Computed example of a mutant assay.
Amino acid sequence: MTKADPVATARELVVERFPQARQAWLAGSVVLGLATETSDLDIPVLLDAVEVHRETLRYRGWPVELFVHTEASIHQFLALDLARRRPSLARMISTGVPLVSGTAGDGVRRECAAVLAAGPGFLDAVGLAYARYTLTDQLDDLAGGAAPPVRDAIAFDVWRGSAELLLACAGRWTGTGKWLVREVQALDEDDGSDYANRLHDGLHEALDGRPDALTVVADEILQQAGGRLGDGFYLNAPPLQRAES
């Protein structure tokens, strides 16, 4: 079954569901030229007043994800995304196709574009040490040998931890799933490196019981952060919350 044009469909949905929307944007894979057969329509919506929420539905044959916000909630979510180093909302709004005519929402879009371009900055010393320690521990587990189900889970953690540390060392955004891969690919494109393919190939070899290639690339990334960190690692616990009497 051929789906209707995504932009026209998204615009029709916004008019139907949110006639008072100041602006809305069609974002995600269908806009970036990365759509697959199962891609959905990601639509952040900006209103003056609304119960902020996320909603999943189907419309005109398309799966749809709605992200319904006020300007205040967008600012709040931008801060949350910055803290976790994943620019989900900033990317959707700044790269999305506007669906409502007029200039309302242009300021929010510019702010999101600035956040996306600036990146999350570099990890502080504590965050970097913890990332090094975690990946070091995972590599020790990978080298120790385990039954295939456990080994495969460890190999995936090494792949993910290596990709996240690589991006952190470059002061770049990270992501989950496909977006983690895309962020590493973007770094490769900018730097002329080949980490995305090397991590991919290393993971597949590790899942086949051959962890050497994945270990090599993980150690190369660790060297950018100061190398493996095991003995001597020290981390203070966060302050305990005192119970109210």
Score class of each variant (00 low, 15 high):
Ser101Arg: 13
Leu135Thr: 00
Gly102Trp: 11
Ala114Trp: 07
His75Asn: 02
Gly145Phe: 00
Gly119Asn: 07
Phe77Asn: 11
His53Asn: 04
Ile154Asp: 13
Ala117Val: 09
Leu135Gln: 06
Pro148Asn: 10
Leu47Asn: 03
Thr134Tyr: 11
Ile74Tyr: 04
Val108Thr: 06
Gly107Asn: 15
Leu167His: 07
Gly61Tyr: 03
Gly96Pro: 05
Ala143Asp: 14
Asp157Asn: 12
Pro120Met: 14
Phe122Leu: 14
Phe67Lys: 03
Cys169Phe: 01
Pro148Ala: 00
Val158Gly: 12
Pro98Phe: 04
Phe67Glu: 13
Thr136Met: 00
Ser88Met: 15
Arg60Thr: 01
Val64Leu: 14
Leu142Arg: 09
Ala170Phe: 09
Thr56Asn: 15
Glu55Lys: 04
Leu165Ser: 03
Ala125Tyr: 03
Pro63Val: 04
Gly175Ile: 09
Gly107Ile: 12
Leu99Ile: 01
Ala117Tyr: 10
Val150Phe: 15
Asp141Pro: 00
Leu89Val: 02
Thr136Asn: 03
Ala129Met: 07
Leu142Trp: 13
Ala155Ile: 08
Glu71Trp: 02
Gly171Ile: 12
Val52Thr: 00
Tyr59Asn: 11
Arg84Gly: 05
Ile154Met: 02
Ala114Asp: 05
Ile74Trp: 07
Leu78Trp: 04
Ala143Tyr: 13
Val50Ala: 00
Leu165Phe: 02
Asp157Gln: 13
Cys169Val: 11
Arg86Phe: 07
Thr70Asn: 09
Pro149Cys: 02
Arg91Asn: 10
Glu55Tyr: 01
Leu135Val: 02
